[in-house]
């Protein structure tokens, strides 16, 4: 008997990890169990049909230094099943799942400080990349200006490159802003505690 499968194509950007968790939990509640991710543009999500049930899906971002045996053991001990890792910039996203028993809330981060720690880590990691791309863009832009004065044939290569790098820089600016907004929201929650 062939199992029923479902594929969903959607993108997932760094600032959307809470939405990603909600998406997977919602799918499970509708009877679709997340199996794995396939590379592609946009990414392809594979689901198996299952009994609808309440499961908590959680994402954590782990840098190579933090990616130790005891990290994974701790999550196993706490009852989390690891579905799969997904490569990000200088780190990995880990997908965790746990069954929700009698309405208990199941989260991997249980205070504002550790949620903030995660956002800070993401801002920093992406910030380094952002900076590298800004330098590349400045370099490409300067070269294009130089070539324009010379009416060089290299312009056929350099103009598209400058535009492409510019687009990447703008996208990174957007991601950083989105993460700063998350950070601000978390800080406000901490600051407004009476």
């Amino acid at each position: 008997m062939k199992e029923n499968k479902k594929y969903v194509r959607k993108s997932f950007w760094v600032h959307q990890y809470e939405r990603e968790e909600q998406f997977l939990s919602d799918m499970r509640a509708k009877g679709w169990e997340f199996v794995k991710l396939h590379r592609g543009i946009p990414t392809k999500y594979e689901f198996d049909q299952c009994e609808p049930a309440a499961y908590s899906y959680q994402l954590d971002y782990v840098t190579p230094e933090e990616d130790t045996q005891d990290y994974h053991q701790l999550f196993r001990d706490a009852g989390w099943d690891e579905i799969m890792p997904w490569d990000g910039i200088n780190g990995k996203w880990y997908y965790f799942v746990k069954k929700i028993e009698d309405g208990m809330e199941e989260k991997i981060f249980t205070d504002q400080e550790s949620k903030l720690q995660l956002v800070n880590k993401l801002i920093k990691t992406y910030g380094v990349f952002f900076f590298v791309f800004i330098l590349l863009e400045i370099n490409a832009f300067a070269r294009t200006i130089q070539l324009l004065t010379e009416s060089s044939l290299w312009l056929l290569f350099d103009i598209p490159l400058t535009i492409l790098l510019g687009a990447v820089v703008i996208w990174f600016i957007y991601l950083e802003f989105a993460m700063f907004a998350m950070k601000k929201k978390l800080q406000e929650k901490i600051n407004t505690q009476l």
Binding site: Q58, D60, E66, Y71, L74, F75, D77, A78, W80, K107, I108, F109, T110, D111, E113, S114, Q117, L118
Partner: peptide, 14 residues
């Protein structure tokens, strides 16, 4: 107080 695995891991590091 039920501490989450991620919270424990991060706070231990801190």
């Amino acid at each position: 107080i039920n501490l989450g695995a991620g919270t424990i891991y991060g706070t231990l590091a801190k």
